[in-house]
Design a protein around this nucleic acid. Structure first.
Lengths: 239, 239
DNA sequence: AATCGATTGAAACAGTCGTTTGAATCCGCT
DNA sequence: AGCGGATTCAAACGACTGTTTCAATCGATT
């Protein structure tokens, strides 16, 4: 047993975690290995080598591989929450702009700048095949974001849709972003190369998904009504 | 070496594959194990036990685990193609109805009737983290379906959108279906229980996604314009 | 019946996995 | 300086993994 080790140094050290603390070094290395290879394929030996500690350390600090995994998922989404706070707008911001900003922000977090950081890939694994670490991830990270999206849609629909319908529309929007991250490699095989770079990167995609949603909700003109790439309809509703 | 074994009995036996053929028994058992646990976590011992053959059989018939996996993915999508042929419509069918049927069919294949058959889950794994078996899966199975969707959208937009824009809209539709299969368990955590059963099952979802698309394309009224669950707008465009 | 290639079977291979051990080392304390 | 708990280390454990071996068995052909 390693019960004599203090259970959570980060809780008392505060946000300025010492990178020389072997506990956070292991958590970081574990997160990257789990994100890259998945729980089964990642090995504690590789994790410890990457963290520069002995194999016995994971048992000493975390008990076993399963508990290390759960802690590393928690560590990942906590760090992610600190890095990317929920957006805030001046009170007179139009709801259409809020929607565009929200979608742009979500896409940027999911796809932004080449390979997304390992935290996102680890969380994505939990979404695709949940383990016991999933519930906490949903409550702390995903549900607040989804609730914000639904509230924006509520504002946008001006009471015309029930909460249930708003959730359904919200899921449609999330799905359109989600597919590019989860099935990105297949998307690249279905769409010509140049088109990927010009139309399926975060910025143009945010424009498209926003326009698609605004048109479906009747807030803007249908996407067939104007030429092509611009994010706005006749009146410039989003900027 | 096991080079003396005939390479593909199913090719000469025709569609009526003998279930007592150890080769297809192994392929079927392997597909289910790989679909359930993934490539790494599935063991050749479990596969052989499930297939009722000796462990040496996989080496005798397929060489090694990697080649067995590739063959089992091929076997899965070939069987799936035979089970679910592409829909065909009378030439006077409205393109709105075609879109609704297509979406309904895709959702039924992905989500239909509780746990989807193992073939779908195996293919989904290939989409989420492609291996060398992915390209063939895309060319034989996914690309034809996506091309059909794009052609329906082309008809619907009546030339108002370029091929690139049609692909982008197609990806939006696929994404809305995809999220329910790939992230289904998280969806269940975000949406109240009763709502799942009433609004997030294939039929109501197909109605919603179709209506969302038709409204976005300006073919039907915005989804805020009419009360709630019905799949049609004022004129009954889809039936 | 005898023969010979195709197929199956039980057992063992070498390697890697997560985990444990027990001694060695570090570091704050009196 | 010297004590004592906290931490690190190399080494080994037993349980698995994919793969191979080689003798036993099968089934059609002569």
């Amino acid at each position: 047993m390693a019960s004599h080790v203090r259970s959570s140094p980060s809780a008392i050290d505060g946000p300025a975690e010492d990178a020389r603390d072997p506990r956070v070094r292991i958590l970081s290395a574990a997160g990257q290995e789990f994100a890259e290879h998945g729980y089964e394929a990642a090995t504690v030996r590789d994790i410890c080598t990457a963290a520069g500690v002995n194999v016995a350390a994971v048992n000493y600090y975390f008990g076993d591989k399963r508990r290390l995994y759960i802690e590393s998922v928690r560590h990942a989404h906590e760090e992610r929450l600190r890095q990317v706070p929920q957006p805030e707008w001046p009170s007179d911001t139009s709801s259409a702009k809020k929607l565009h900003d929200f979608i742009d922000n979500m896409l940027e977090r999911m796809l932004g700048a080449g390979q997304p950081p390992w935290q996102v890939r680890l969380m994505m694994r939990e979404v695709l095949q949940p383990t016991e670490a999933c519930r906490e991830l949903v409550e702390d990270y995903i549900r607040p974001h989804f609730a914000l999206l639904v509230s924006i849609l509520d504002e946008l629909a001006a009471g015309a849709l029930s909460q249930a319908e708003l959730r359904r529309v919200g899921m449609s929007i999330v799905g359109q972003c989600f597919v590019y991250r989860a099935a990105g490699e297949v998307v690249c095989m279905l769409v010509p190369q140049g088109e990927i770079e010009s139309l399926h990167t975060p910025k143009p995609l945010a424009d498209h998904i926003t326009r698609y949603a605004l048109a479906a909700l009747g807030v803007a003109a249908p996407i067939t009504a104007f030429p092509s790439s611009a994010s706005s309809s006749g009146r410039d509703v989003v900027s």
